[in-house]
Each structure stands twice: as C-alpha cells, then as structure tokens.
Design a protein around this nucleic acid. Structure first.
Lengths: 330, 330
DNA sequence: ATGAAAGCGCTAACAC
DNA sequence: GTGTTAGCGCTTTCAT
C-alpha cells in the first residue's frame, strides 16, 4: 500500500480510501491510484485489515462429513448465505469424533471467525464458554449442544418424523416393524428411536431394534437375526439415509416394507420406489446461517430453538401391505 | 497476550514463547504462564500471527458445487490432506460461473492463502498472473486452466474413459450409440465427446449427440427426438453422473443399453445395475492436495500434468445386446 | 532464561 | 479532498 501510495504520489491513507471505496477522494486522484494498483498488482492484505478492524468476515462451519449428501446440501446452503453477506466460509469435518470437533472449533476461534455453525459430534461443549462470553454467536444445527449450554439450535422434528413413519406402516397393516439406526449416543438416532417407540406403544419389541454404525456386515447380521425370529418383521424403519441404502443392499431379496428417514437421490428410481421421511438439508443450512447473521447484526434475544418439520414421501416401499410379498429385486 | 504477561508477571515475549512451545523457558515460568492463560481464557490471535509471519496456514479450494457428490468427495479428500498439514481449508462453489470463480480466487488471494486448488469454471485465468508470480502455488483439478497458463493440473483420462465406454457398447453389438452430455464449453464434456467420437469413427452421427445442461425436460426432448429416428439408438453413453441419473429418469421405459461416466451410489441397486466409467474423486482431491503441499515445501520443478485413469464397472445396463429388449422398470 | 523494541499492513481518529 | 499519527496483537531481532 505504501508502494502504491508513492507510485501514485499520494499518501497511504488515500490509497486506503480508494481501495475501500470511501467517499471524499477526487476522481482524478482515485484514477491515478487505481492505475498504480493495477501496475503493481497490489491486493489488500486481508490479515492486516482483520487485525485492525477486529472482524474477520469469516464464518466457521463444523459438520460431520462433507461427503455425506445431507451435510453437503447443508454446506452449500450455508455457503450461499455466507457469501451473500460478503463473508467467507471456513469449514471442516469432524468425522463424528468429539476430539476433532473441538479442535476445529478451537482453531476457528483462534482465527477469530465472526460466528460459528456447529453440527456437534460430542456432548460436552463447555469449552465454548469463553468464546460465547466473548460474544461470538454460535448456532448448533442438526444436533443440540451438550448439557449446560443454552444457545440457538436448528433441529429436525426427528421424533415426529419417526412417529409418522411408524404410523404409516401401521396403517398398512404392519405390526412387526423393525428399527435400524445409528448408535443412540447420536442425538438424531435416539430421537428417532424415541418417536418410533412412542408410536409403537405396546407393539415395541427390543429384538427388532438395532442401533450401531451402518456397516454392510452388521446390518446383514442384524437382519438375519431378526428374520430368523418366530415372528419376524414385515416392515423396516431405517434411521437415516446411509442406513436406508445399506439396508436395501443387505436385504438382498428378503421381503419387507420399508420407510427410511432422509430422502436420497434415486429413491424414486428403485423398484419399488423407496418411501421416505424427507428432511431438507438446504433449508436447515439456510435457517441456521440466517439466524447466525441475525445475531451478528445485534439481535440479542433469548436463544432460539427452531424445529424443522419433515414430510412423508410415499413411493411404494412403504405402502406394501403386511400380507403381501415384497422383494427389492423381484 | 499483554494481559497474560502481566498476570503471570513476565514479559510478553515469554508468553509468546510458551504459546509457541519455543525452548528456553524455565518450566516453572511456563507453568505460571499457562495458568494465567487458562484463567484469562486467552487464545492466540491468528490474524496478528499471520500478519507478522506472512504465512496463513490456509488453503483455498474453489469447486463447482459442494452438493455434487463428485466435488463433495474431492473436498473431503482435500480437507483431510490440508488438516494433516496443520492447515485450514477455505472453500467456495463457483456454480459453474466464471465470474464467481474469479471472485472466489481473488478473495482467497486477498486473504493470502498459502496455496490454491481450483476447479475452473471459466477459461481465462490470466487474472492469476500476479499471484503466481508472487509465488503462490496453484493446482488445477478436474479441468485445466485457460490458454497461456502452464501450471500443475490433475485431470481424469476423460477421452480414454469415453472411448472405453463406447468400445464396451460396440463389443455388445451396438452400432447406434447416443451421447448425452454437458455443453462442450466444459472441458470434461468436450474431452468425453472427443473420446466418444474417436472410438466411434465412421459410426458417428451427430443426430445422436446432445450436449446441454441436464434438465429433465431437455433430456426427455432429446431422447424423444433420437428415438423417433428411422435408426434410433440402441445404446446411450451419458457424459456425467447427473446426466446418467437424469437420463434414467427421462428414459421411462424406453429400451436402450446404457453406460454412464461417473459412478454413483445405488448404481448397483437399480435393475439392471448401471454400468459406469468410474472416476475416484477422493483420489483426485488427494493427489491435487499433495502436489500442492509438495510445491509449498519448495519443489520448484516444471508444472506437472497428472492424468488419473478410470475403470469400467459392468453392472448390467451396459451389457445388454443390441437386439435384446431392455427397460429400466421391467 | 528472559526482556525491550521494532514493525508486519492496515484502518480509525483526527488534523489540515 | 488529503495527510499524519497511533496502534491492532503478534513475532523477530538483538540485548541482557
């Protein structure tokens, strides 16, 4: 900037004014400065600017895994809002490890992000205390923070969605409805289990519940075990998109109705189409990011707890009557 | 830092030493400093550090769209390598708009990223000149830079893969093989067209080629037009993952063999399974990021041009003989 | 083993 | 309309 100033024969401050589009610079001077800038290939050092102004115009996003379509959609929406506000997005995947989540958050904080959107992997967020006190707004998305922290959250109506899925299957005559989902330590999984259980009432049978990481082997084993029962399941409720796909693969010709949590591409092209409880990841991303920017603009109201509704999309797999035959690959 | 220093009764520099794990501090002093740090909730201001040291430990990544599974996989791989090197990832989606690509790159440069990985949307990258001269390493991934710029690239063997697809279909007796792909302004699309055409030789018929954005309507229209010909296609080669899916949807019962460029989840669960030319987005991301860090470590060799091979995965849809019947939903 | 001082590149506050 | 000065929080260099 100093070089540009001397090249243009003006003071450093004038260059600063031009670079920032501040008023009060003679057009001719401004032009001279711009020429010098181009000639020297100058571009403002954002780090220095940040240091001086105290605002980084950067938002941090911690998700579970960008390669998961749900989080990819969420990221894209957050990114769009962030860019709209003239900011940049620093993002990282926790890979479901609390340690990495914390590392990412702390690194983002050290870089003085203006705000943070977190899909937590762990359940202890006391480490966020200092940052929150320092006034950095934080929005939790998809999962709430651990105990003792009351901050903005944007969640899905997980229990309601699970209940809806079960009700749908009950309506079609099913009484033996299995649940395959993630480990209950994961908030969304335990909420969906809760909704499933509540809706099922007296029909609940823990032998029809399997909650662990969705590897093909484990799902295959669990299905084999369930189908070997005297009263095997006639319907399945899968706890998330990855689970649904893995289950479809592990089902391999076995007959059962199926409703999955999370919509996924091609669900409509399978035969039969896969009925799902659909969330909208972009919506969640947008809502979370907009809430964050509202805080950034100074909204200091009490923490908001937004719950996004889901909707059932019937496509065939969930509408198979309990006494009918059904196979993934007829 | 000043506060910590006075709280611990030491000089600022000593705090700096402790924070950075520099040697030459008495353990007792270090302990006093650490206590003060914890008590005050201090965390180093990364912006100031960057300003002083000149390195930001940040890598910029510009892709087309995080929500596209290909780029999501690439992002994840890049992120992993970046984190391994103790850096952070700043990323953004160009949405296939050259203007946004440039804006993102320039914003990243203004923030003094240490290096850049770019999936270009445009074909003029002269604007990168100053940055390259300033020594910022840049790696182009998936698509090469515009004319006049010789930098590191990591591409897929697009033409070879397309040729492989066509050869596979020819082997199964097909002579009327259509190509549905993106606009040829997109490098990968034109390369795949080139491979398709070369392999087809005299069998090439431009009436069987459609290259435009993959909207369901346009694909549907193009297919209708092609199937209305006196000698309609008996096989289709789709130019990328999104195209394949859209085509499957638009096909709606019409009979044709199909090979698609790009693998996608559930390709194996459709009936028949969809045969594809598979790329590995994680591999591309990893290779690009590792090349970038090699440059960052000082490797000043001539620009490298890496071409990643693809592999054909036969799953059924590409192995239908030309005289057989084939329907997506039997 | 510890500290003092200079300065990274910029913007805010205040002259002129 | 333009320039001067101070200082953001840190690391670097050089003393002690």
């Amino acid at each position: 900037m100093k070089d540009v100033a001397s090249a243009a024969g003006v003071a450093l401050k004038t260059v600063s004014r031009v670079v920032n589009g501040e008023p009060g610079v003679h057009p001719a001077t401004a032009e001279r400065v711009r020429t010098a800038i181009d000639r020297l290939g100058y571009s403002r050092n954002e780090s220095a600017r940040v240091l001086r102004r105290g605002r980084t115009a950067t938002i941090g996003l911690v998700i579970e895994d960008v390669a998961d379509p749900f989080y990819a959609g969420l990221s894209r929406a957050v990114e769009a809002v962030v860019i709209d506000h003239g900011c940049l997005l620093l993002s990282g995947s926790s890979g479901e490890e609390p340690g990495r989540e914390r590392e990412l958050v702390e690194t983002f904080c050290a870089r003085r992000v203006d705000g943070l959107i977190v899909v937590p992997a762990g359940d202890d967020h006391t480490y966020l205390g200092p940052e929150l006190e320092a006034g950095t707004p934080v929005v939790f998305a998809d999962r709430p923070p651990g105990a003792g922290l009351d901050v903005d959250t944007v969640l899905t109506d997980n229990a309601g969605g699970a209940g809806q899925a079960v009700r749908h299957l009950l309506t079609h005559g099913h009484r033996r409805i299995a649940f395959l989902g993630d480990h209950p330590a994961i908030f969304t999984a335990s909420e969906r289990l809760r909704g499933y259980r509540a809706e099922l009432g007296g029909l609940y049978d823990e032998r029809l519940v399997s909650m662990r990481p969705p590897s093909l082997e484990s799902v295959r084993g669990d299905l084999a075990r369930m189908f070997a029962l005297d009263d095997p399941p006639t319907a399945l409720f899968t706890g998330n998109g990855r689970y649904t796909v893995t289950t479809l693969r592990a089902l391999a010709g076995r007959r059962a109705a199926l409703v999955g949590f999370d919509d996924f591409e091609l669900a409509d092209l399978l035969a039969p189409g896969v009925s799902v409880i659909a969330q909208d990841p972009s919506w969640m991303g947008r809502v979370a990011a907009e809430l964050l920017f509202r805080r950034l603009r100074g909204d200091a109201g009490p923490p908001e707890h937004i719950e996004l509704p889901v909707r059932l999309i019937p496509r065939g797999s969930g509408e198979v009557p309990s006494d009918d035959t059904y196979g993934l690959r007829p």
